[in-house]
């Protein structure tokens, strides 16, 4: 009790502590009551391998592999209902982001779609400074979901017909400045 009261990790270096350290405000994770408000509130909770509450119990038990391989963080839609309602003020949505980052970094995700979508998206942003839907969706679908492109086709056609899809990327002017900022940030993050 004394130790956690002073914010000292009970067992540094564990998976649980790593997740806490990598999330701004993550210390609140220690306060989880296992009440299930998050799991009850989650719009995609029915389709998750484990509810967020269940994930937190697994985190406390340091079940790294099972947690990072689960689809739970990838099925988070960032609606922030859990964060808003959590009686212990745990930043649950941010923890889901942390778990995604850790899963990618360690290559532990099982469902390839979601992480690849995220990576395709940010590849685009880093190149042009802005996102453009058609290029992104096409590249993503052609690389990862060849069977899905037919459905994408009708969607894209509707959007194109109403001039709502960009065929060429828009780019910011100062891409070199953005690149410098992001490179520095990556360097700092790597050094952590």
């Amino acid at each position: 009790m004394m130790a956690s009261g002073n914010g000292q990790p009970s067992s540094p270096g564990t998976f649980f502590e790593e997740v806490i350290a990598k999330t701004p405000g993550g210390e609140a994770l220690r306060l989880c009551l296992q009440c299930g408000t998050c799991g009850g509130s989650c719009p995609s909770g029915e389709d998750m391998d484990y509810t967020p509450r269940h994930i937190f119990a697994m985190l406390a038990a340091n079940m790294k592999d099972k947690v990072l391989r689960s689809n739970t963080p990838w099925y988070c839609v960032s609606c922030y209902y859990c964060t808003e309602r959590c009686p212990q003020e745990i930043p649950i949505t941010d923890i889901m982001y942390t778990l995604k980052r850790m899963a990618i970094a360690q290559g532990l995700y099982e469902d390839a779609d979601a992480p690849d979508w995220s990576q395709t998206f940010i590849g685009m942003v880093e190149q042009f400074g802005r996102s453009y839907e058609l290029g992104l969706a096409t590249r993503y679908h052609l690389t990862h979901r060849p069977l899905g492109k037919i459905r994408l086709g009708t969607f894209a056609l509707d959007m194109l017909r109403r001039d709502r899809l960009a065929l060429t990327p828009s780019s910011i002017r100062n891409t070199s400045q953005l690149r410098a900022i992001l490179d520095k940030a990556k360097e700092l993050e790597g050094a952590q």
Partner: peptide, 11 residues
């Protein structure tokens, strides 16, 4: 009434 049945681990 929507809740997670935490003993079952499901919504």
């Amino acid at each position: 009434v929507q809740a997670e049945d935490t003993l079952m681990g499901a919504q």
